[in-house]
């Protein structure tokens, strides 16, 4: 079995409008690898939502994408404030985003629900005042 491919990104908060750079890059790279388009679509949407969350709530973070022959893992790590109530945050429509974020088209309270919808497995490790790590797995077959 060949070695997994690893992509690492710093998700920068300095320019909100550039959020999505990592997801779009991963999408392009995975296309070149010839992965099925539905797998790529699921992964890139889940990852973009994660990126946006890190920009809105945590002043950025890191994104790692690990591609094996059987699955793709996305690990999003930030040092933000943590999520006080994960069950509440997972509810569609629940959002703590500001009016400025709404004006950009985000803050619908769909970020985490979309990440769950488009990944096959999702795990959230969060600690108040320390940060949050979201791990998502998408099976290729």
């Amino acid at each position: 079995m060949s070695e997994p491919l690893v992509f690492h990104f710093e998700v920068d908060v300095s320019d909100f409008t550039s959020a999505g750079t990592a997801s779009v890059t991963v999408k392009k790279n995975l296309r070149q690898l010839g992965l099925p388009s539905d797998v790529i679509r699921k992964l890139s949407i889940a990852m973009y939502e994660g990126e946006i969350n890190m920009v809105i709530h945590a002043e950025g973070g890191t994104a790692d994408v690990i591609v094996t022959e059987e699955y793709i893992d996305i690990i999003l790590k930030d040092h933000g404030p943590g999520i006080p109530d994960v069950d509440l945050a997972m509810q569609e429509g629940y959002s703590t985003a500001t009016a400025q974020i709404h004006s950009l088209g985000f803050g619908a309270g769909m970020g985490l629900p979309n990440m769950k919808r488009y990944s096959d497995e999702m795990k959230i490790d969060t600690e108040l005042g320390v940060g949050t790590t979201v791990t998502m797995r998408i099976w290729i077959r």
Binding site: A19, V24, K27, S44, Y48, G105, F106
Partner: peptide, 15 residues
Amino acid sequence: IMSNINVIAVATLAD
């Protein structure tokens, strides 16, 4: 009716 840069990213990702 949205016209900011994120529309382009969403269109790319949602295909």
